[in-house]
Design a protein around this nucleic acid. Structure first.
Lengths: 209, 209
DNA sequence: CAGCAATTTGACTAACTAGTCAACAACGTC
DNA sequence: GACGTTGTTGACTAGTTAGTCAAATTGCTG
């Protein structure tokens, strides 16, 4: 097997960062190439269009994130702690991104999906898939929390939909207002939305009913 | 005073529709001019740049919507009914837009703000202003509902922030999934988030405690 | 080392982009 | 009916855009 370069990954990484910090439309192929230290020809050797690159970059980005997600949402973790840990993880990610580029960036999938939703079928299909999978993590945690009597959520699917909407809304608000404040309240708000009682009590001291 | 044309309004309307249905980045000045039946020169007679047009178009659009908002959120209307009527109004607007362009479009301010947030200071400032005003409608309705004992919301500002996040999240989800379903649950979800008890009971039959 | 597939290069195109400008037309007013 | 303000026109520029391509380079394998 002849040589295998990391150019494809470099291009996808560069694209994700540029699209996330700016937007899909304002990110040119030239800019992606420059950031990835690639020439135009290399780009079109690996991807047949900017749209295809976006789809593959989204897929690769999510595949990578899922490793951490599977860990956070492990069924061995108490269900509400899964959500708590996830929201803290997201806050940390946002803070890190803020430190690196000086702006609250929100959710990359949401930003790209929102922008290209009516224009690029392939991209929005990919974003939908990611959203759907993300919601499943929530759904299963909520169902387990209900089964263990920690919350009352007879319809876990609906509740997960609500939680995703609230969660994405917080991230989007934070991006638009360039203000991490909506994210500070994210965890408490999510617990309130789920009807968790003892708010403010550290999870180590909480009993499962 | 010499003649006064409607060209400025035509250009702003065309811009709002095109940006809402597609995106800011993918909407060219040429396309706006074509839709408004204007020539390039007319555009730059009224606006000094595409960015300035967007700011003014957002402002005019919101000013127009506020007339209806003030009516819906009139202090003479029972506070929870204000929110119920508003969410129904939004659902109707989304359905209408779907009928006209075959796609669920979500919130135009959110879409534009999300896309240009890190790039265009003037536009994002305008969007922030609109978001802030929108949140005030919610806040005052929630405070009144709390005062009348319909819900328990000691901190109306925080609760309004949560409701806006959930509301915007539903709209954004609907756009990305091109599916009006998240909007069907919007009203019920909002009431649940506010901790309103008797859900499903028609508002005319509800007593204020 | 020969051969071959994977990779890399950078100049090239054709279309589109935002924005300019000088001339021209319409209107109200004096 | 002359004048000044406002509105309208469309050709123009200079830069950027996504995408092409033929030729060159790399590293593995037999």
């Amino acid at each position: 097997m002849p040589r295998r370069s990391d150019m494809e990954e470099r291009l996808m990484n560069a694209a994700m960062i540029l699209i996330w910090t700016n937007s899909y439309g304002s990110t040119s192929v030239d800019a992606i190439c420059e950031k990835a230290h690639a020439k135009k020809g290399s780009f079109y050797h690996f991807f047949e269009s900017k749209s295809e690159l976006a789809v593959k970059a989204l897929e690769a980005d999510w595949r990578q994130k899922k490793v951490r997600m599977d860990e956070i949402f492990s069924p061995t973790v108490p269900p509400l702690d899964r959500l708590r840990r996830y929201f803290r993880h997201v806050c940390q990610g946002q803070t890190k991104a803020y430190g690196e580029c000086g702006a609250v960036l929100g959710c990359p999938y949401c930003a790209i999906g929102c922008e290209t939703g009516t224009q690029d079928r392939a991209i929005s299909k990919q974003v939908r898939k990611i959203f759907n999978e993300n919601e499943r993590y929530f759904e299963s945690a909520i169902r387990d929390a209900d089964a263990e009597g920690m919350i009352s959520a007879p319809n876990a699917k609906d509740k997960a939909g609500m939680l995703v909407a609230y969660f994405q809304g917080c991230l989007t608000k934070a991006r638009i207002e360039n203000d991490a404040r909506p994210l500070k309240n994210l965890l408490a708000g999510a617990m309130e939305l789920l009807g968790v009682q003892r708010k403010g009590v550290p999870e180590s001291k909480q009993r499962s009913r």
